[in-house]
Amino acid sequence: MNNFNYLRASDVQDAISQSAREADVKYLAGGTNLIDLMKYNLTRADILVDINRISDHREITELPDGGLRLGAFVKNAATAWNHLVEEHYPLLSKAILAGASAQIRNMATNGGNLLQRTRCYYFYDANVPCNKREPGSGCSAITGYQRIMAILGTTEHCIAVFPSDMCVALAALDAVVQVEGPQGMRSIHFADFHRLPGDTPHIDNNLKPGEIITGIDLPAKGFSKNYSYLKLRDRNSYAFALVSVATGLELDGETITDARIALGGVAHKPWRVAAAEDFLKGKTASGENFRQAAEIIVQGAVGYEHNAFKIELAKRAIVRNCMMALHPESQLPGAQPSA
């Protein structure tokens, strides 16, 4: 960890004005990832602007259109256990609780969750090539151990995955990210927030310099009747997803009227395929139809020596999770598979 200056911002505008300094400025929220990255010398900052004392954006409030606004500085745990979230967006609640540990969720903020960086082994080792850490240095993962790496949207420059569980649900729910920056406020649709690696894998998302996430808006439709989050990983808790699936279904009898399916653990961002969701609309909620949707979702997937299994696993996970969404009452804690 390098030496740095530490400042406390009194409000969002104050924080943004600090970011205009001629220095490497980073915002500090929960710090559950940033501090690790600094300790490992993977991220350096000249100035850390602590935004934890800002009094705004610390609440979960109902929006006039029936949706919900999650303050960016609300902790992940407080969000998961918020009664409005639990009642109207249980998919989000479940996804948050499948991530990290209780201690980390107590510290981590909603805004910060979107900005966590990949847990690729090679990104985390400052002494090996990694295009995400050091553009142009190469990708060690492609020739290395790829068990946890991506199968969708990869390029020769990067096969890392985005590790969040919460964001998989936010993607499925069509959330909108509210940001404030030197040029004022704007909204970013969740699908446009994170980026695929392309030839610039060092850029994780479309935030502009100095911008701060202030909130996450959830549209009114919360899929609270038929939803499920399934997380498949190498141990039953405190491990990142090899494959995770967020499913929200809207049913009329046995007919699907709306469907959302997002995958985690397989790409540089939560993965959604509109064609698969469109395919399901008007179809019967059956394993066969879910299997066909799954085939559409993983189209174009490329596996490597150690992660090729993810292609078949993702398909099976999608089918299972869609079936689980038909019986949300029988779901198990920890987003484990149930019947």
Binding site: R119, D125, R235
Partner: peptide, 15 residues
């Protein structure tokens, strides 16, 4: 490559 307890997986209570 996994020189930490996040990626060196030992069992958790749920296991």
């Amino acid at each position: 490559m996994n020189q930490n307890l996040s990626e060196y997986h030992i069992p958790v209570h749920a296991d």
